[in-house]
Design a protein around this nucleic acid. Structure first.
Lengths: 119, 119
DNA sequence: CAAACATATGAATAAGTGTTCAAATGTTCA
DNA sequence: TGAACATTTGAACACTTATTCATATGTTTG
């Protein structure tokens, strides 16, 4: 059909086959939303730094703040976000709370991002 | 030394060894920044949808807008961001601009994010 | 060239985000 | 129990960001 060869969005009510194929394969709305939420958590350099720190060792908020050169309050706020995303966990040891990586996926995700950055 | 066993941030000017180890292994500031920037681009469900669409086929802005049920203007704005991040590219074909995935890393990154989401 | 179409862009707006400051909570130890 | 320390929390603020609307740019075709 010659009609489909005419590259025109309006007359053919967009290219129906393309739109249909894309729509069919599109994941559920909630998956897309969750996916964006995860990446949003990684989309802040303070949180990235915290994760790199936790790659090395379990560490208390105080040392994290010192390592990152940031307010302990700021670090604590970011730790809450990481905890809500189930990326890190915290265990109390005496007066201190020791944070640790909860999910090895973190390493995979950051590694895949690094691949893109380092070229 | 008994001193290092005392869990106290203040007296020992934080746990120096921990802080030093973390600081040593921390990537350069600009790498951390770029990394966060990349993830920031993935941290929006509209852009995620666009990328999933491009997994299926090269597609024009008009069809993208139709597939996603969004304004063509909104889609165009997001495409600009994806293009600046060198994740997608656009080639003009007649009146239309066909967008395509520029970087196979995109699939890797989204796959690693999906792993975390789907459990 | 003018009309029609596809896309891009700029300004405006509303919603979201990270840090700071002050204060609250939780824990240890004398 | 009370003083000292570690962490958390809430409100406020400045700063981003995504979408919309209007308009501009670029392309084809009669």
């Amino acid at each position: 059909m010659a009609l489909t060869d005419v590259e025109n969005c309006e007359i053919h009510e967009v290219h129906e086959d393309n739109v249909r194929r894309v729509t069919e394969k599109m994941p559920d709305e909630d998956v897309l939303y969750d996916l964006a939420e995860v990446f949003k958590v990684f989309g802040d350099s303070t949180r990235i730094k915290i994760l790199f720190a936790l790659f090395e060792e379990d560490i208390c908020v105080c040392d994290l703040a010192e390592s990152l050169g940031m307010t302990q309050s700021a670090v604590s706020h970011q730790l809450r976000i990481l905890k809500q995303a189930r990326l890190v966990g915290g265990r109390r040891e005496g007066k201190q709370v020791i944070y640790y990586l909860m999910d090895e996926h973190v390493r995979t995700i950051i590694a895949s991002g690094l691949e893109h950055v380092l070229e």
